[in-house]
């Protein structure tokens, strides 16, 4: 079996196992579930990283020059972030909401054939690396915000239904979730802003900044994503949006992120 196939299958299996253990731990508290989740996630991260390196070597370019392939980096960072931030944010159930997304993004990145090839698309330079890095970091922040928003709605629904037991009992308080969601918006938006500025700068230095660049669906949806999140943050600060509505709109906004990442290439 080729190393690429081997690492792909291994990463798929381990991401699947991590998603299973995370959801099982959330749905019903299981003995040893935390340990199994940790092991599966670490294993998935290792296999995932190996798959990216092998693919990079095979294609000759890093997975940052085309959006679908960038999903591999995005999903790896999200898996790592989900594991690390669950303690930092005090949200033990975070992997239950991020790991299925990680699995879906990994599958999309690995199978949609969006890996660039050929020297024409080989783009090197610090500006591009920074542009992609900040964009992915912003997307990871928005993904965690998406998970926090889902958990907020889940918890709120349980509270409105007068239920104390069940899965919602393993979610943090509404305040904690709201704070986490707000934090992801506050960190994600500046990162996305930076990414857009760096992207424009990089295009300008490459001499390709012009009407054609502005009509690029990636750019258009990047700007739409920025506008949507900026509006949410602004409306929240100005009290037009609060509580459940912020959560619902944040979930919808993440749909724009996913489309930007995976769907825009179909508009080309």
């Amino acid at each position: 079996m080729e190393p690429r196939t081997l690492t792909l299958l291994l990463a798929l299996a381990l991401h699947g196992a991590a998603a299973f253990f995370a959801i099982r731990a959330f749905v019903r508290r299981a003995e040893g579930g935390e340990r199994l989740l940790g092991l599966a996630t670490v294993g998935a991260l290792a296999a995932h990283a190996a798959f990216v390196v092998v693919s990079w070597r095979n294609h000759g370019v890093p997975p940052i020059t085309a959006l679908p392939a960038t999903a591999l980096v995005f999903s790896w960072l999200l898996a790592a972030g989900g594991l690390a931030l669950r303690r930092m944010l005090g949200i033990a159930a975070l992997p239950a909401f991020t790991s299925p997304l990680v699995l879906a993004l990994f599958v999309a990145g690995a199978f949609t054939g969006g890996w660039p090839g050929g020297p024409g698309e080989r783009l090197v330079g610090v500006a591009l690396a920074l542009h992609v890095a900040t964009a992915v970091a912003a997307y990871v922040a928005f993904a965690i915000g998406f998970a926090a928003a889902l958990m907020f709605l889940w918890q709120e629904r349980a509270l409105r239904s007068r239920r104390l037991g069940g899965s919602a009992s393993r979610l943090p308080s509404l305040e904690t979730l709201d704070r986490a969601l707000h934090g992801t918006l506050l960190s994600g938006l500046p990162l996305l802003t930076t990414s857009l500025v760096l992207g424009a700068g990089w295009q300008r230095s490459a001499g390709t900044l012009g009407q054609e660049w502005l009509l690029d669906p990636k750019v258009i949806f990047g700007l739409i994503t920025w506008a949507v999140y900026a509006s949410i943050l602004l409306a929240r600060q100005a009290l037009f949006l609060h509580g459940r509505r912020v959560a619902v709109i944040s979930i919808a906004a993440f749909g724009v992120v996913l489309f930007t990442l995976l769907g825009t290439r179909h508009l080309l």
Binding site: S173, L174, R179
Partner: peptide, 12 residues
């Protein structure tokens, strides 16, 4: 006790 449990689910 239930009232406190609801409070803990809402407030950090």
């Amino acid at each position: 006790g239930v009232a406190v449990a609801f409070a803990r689910r809402i407030f950090e």
